[in-house]
Simulated scan of single mutants.
Amino acid sequence: MASRCARLLWLAACMLVAGCRHPFTPVTRPEDALHELSQPLELRDDGEPAALRAAIAESLVWLNTRPGDQRFIFGKREVTAAELRAALEHLQSRLTDGLTPAELSARVLEDFEPLEAAGGEDGLVLFTGYYEPAIEASLTRTEEYSTPIYGAPKDLIEVPLEPFGDRFKSEKVFGRLDGRKLVPYWSRSEIRGGKLSSQGLELAWAKDPVALFFVEVQGSGTLRLPDGTERRIGYAGSNGRPYRSIGSLLIQEGIIPREAMSMQALRAWLAANGPQCDRVLDYNESYVFFRYLEGSAVGSLGRPVTPGRSIATDSKLFPRGALAFLQTERPVALPDGTVQWQPLSRFVLNQDTGGAIKGAGHVDVFWGRGPEAELAAGLMKQKGRLVFLVPRRTAAQ
């Protein structure tokens, strides 16, 4: 905190003496989240057109459920659901196999124009990753499988606050009734202590509580059952408590250096320090409830997310279901076991959100299943640029 205050004072002095740029103000309104490009950006896509078509198709399915006059805010621009749907449909119809990156970019820019995300304090976006982990579980409780995987509780109440005033737009609170009062829902430690054990909410039982915790963080996962079959689970709600990073806790306590922190380092420390697991996990009071999925992992739109093509952002700032483009780096494992960072630049769809994704300076990229996905999800914390593609006025008309 002291170093941050010193930096702000230094920036203020620069403004007065040398006319430096204004100190950073966190973006809290969607009107301020996007602006004209700060510098040229080549929209060169390094992915497969088929995956892009699949991701666009999921956004279109969701947009077809929206009223045609629903407004989507792209910075200072507003676009209706009908206009966004028409632009994406036209683009999808022209995404053929074999397109070169230059041809793909040209087709996108015929119908869309780029607006850049405001980013964080340095004007850049922090890119992290998430994936669909697999954990050992059983449909019945045993001594080996004893950690419950809960579905959404019957007494969990969701209260949208927007009807109480415009200043509460998109805000919600979650709680439970205590007599006639709405009080915060049970915390992680209270749920672990058995507050839900009498509701019959158990979908299955996990072998490792730490592995289940990371499924909560990712939002979906695969249960590997003792008979060799698998069941997929996805997000069904949360207790409404604020998300707090256990990685940040261990950094603050001096246990893991900031530069060494990753999902892999965090899991290794928890595995080696079993007696401290409950204390560390309970630091994050947020608790996620699950439901069974018939197909692949779904995002906040209620539609499947596409590996490498779906992103999660702050839903209060960026238009849901919209087309975007990112430029950053991703880790790739080499045959000798080392990790190499390679450029990542591609069109993506804004199809998810998350409790840890706050502000205009953080984006989570979905990577799917498997070792490569786990590597990217665990190591990615790279800076880069994000632009959203807003339908051109002529294309929308």
Rank of each mutant, 00 (worst) to 15 (best):
D155S: 06
N350A: 03
P148T: 05
E103A: 13
I255V: 15
G321P: 08
S138N: 15
G378H: 00
Y145W: 12
F127A: 04
D111Q: 04
R258H: 14
P163T: 07
K76M: 11
L95I: 15
L196V: 03
E58W: 11
Q342A: 15
D314Y: 02
D282F: 01
G240Y: 03
V387A: 02
G219L: 07
R291P: 00
F164T: 08
V339R: 11
R107K: 15
M263V: 11
D111C: 05
L63F: 09
Q70P: 13
K195G: 02
G165N: 00
L104Y: 01
P242K: 02
I256W: 03
S310G: 05
S197V: 01
S105G: 10
E78R: 14
E372M: 10
E143S: 10
E144H: 12
R231I: 13
I191P: 00
G254R: 10
V17I: 08
A13Q: 04
D314G: 03
S170W: 09
K76D: 14
P304A: 05
L88P: 02
P307C: 11
E36C: 07
Y185I: 11
Y131G: 07
L177T: 07
L95S: 08
A137G: 04
Y150F: 15
V79W: 00
D336S: 05
G228V: 08
K381H: 07
R244F: 02
V305I: 15
R85S: 09
N284A: 01
D208Y: 12
G219D: 11
A55V: 09
P304N: 08
V210N: 04
D227S: 08
S138Y: 12
V125S: 04
T28K: 12
F347S: 00
E372G: 12
A55H: 06
K358H: 03
I73M: 13
Y292M: 07
A265K: 01
S187R: 14
E253L: 14
W62N: 04
A102K: 09
A51E: 13
E202N: 01
R241S: 05
G120N: 06
E58F: 07
R320N: 13
V215M: 09
